[in-house]
Amino acid sequence: MNKALHKFGEYTLLMFKTFAIPDKWNMFFKQLIREIYKLGVDSLWIVIIISVFIGTVIAVQISLNISSPLIPKFTIGYTTREIVLLEFSSSIMCLILAGKVGSNIASEIGTMRVTEQIDAMEIMGVNSANYLIMPKILGLMMFIPVLVFFSMFTGILGGVAASYVTPGMTPTSFAFGLQFYFNPFYITYSVIKSVVYAFLISSIASYYGYYVKGGALDVGKASTDAVVISSIMILLADMLLTQFMLT
């Protein structure tokens, strides 16, 4: 418990150090663009590939598990849409991104720590947390809605594709189900959740990387810890946000 409190205190102090006014705005914007590209744009393909396949699988699974003639066929499209919009494109996608982006951030900052690159910045008088961490957090928070939209679109597209080839499902009923009882707030809800998750992933990973002590093994451990803790925090935040926003 003591250790957890100590870590939370350390994390909070790091966030205070991180969110300061940059010394040079042009350097900050350069870093921000770089991070948006590295953390966001580079994740686009994995998001698209996973979303298409999961969208397809969700549609096929629902189709296979609905055997009752009393349940209308459009339920497949309706349920696929609800799963993709409400949970998959935000929570599950961010759990996947916690693995990719979180480990990337923790290992990058951790390596900079153990090779004294962060000390070099501090010696120069540069606020290393502000220079390294703030662009990562803001970059990911800014780009994650784009990833979520792509995930929603391609996930549903995967479902539509499945409706053409899966027995027991028709594209017409699937399309009807997609439009049935549509609540646009679910998109807003999903985007808000993903922005919170983006903050959690990037800040927790940065924290674990920034305070690495030791060598290559410790960087690896920090990277793993970052993924595990940010995944747990995503699930916790999912529960809380769902309670606050949908009930």
Partner: peptide, 28 residues
Amino acid sequence: EMGMLFQGSALFDSLTVMENVLFPLNSF
């Protein structure tokens, strides 16, 4: 007013040698 040479040089991996030397100049 300080400069430091580290044991492992501590050059920034993502920057070229020139950009490394420019880094403190760009910053201050």
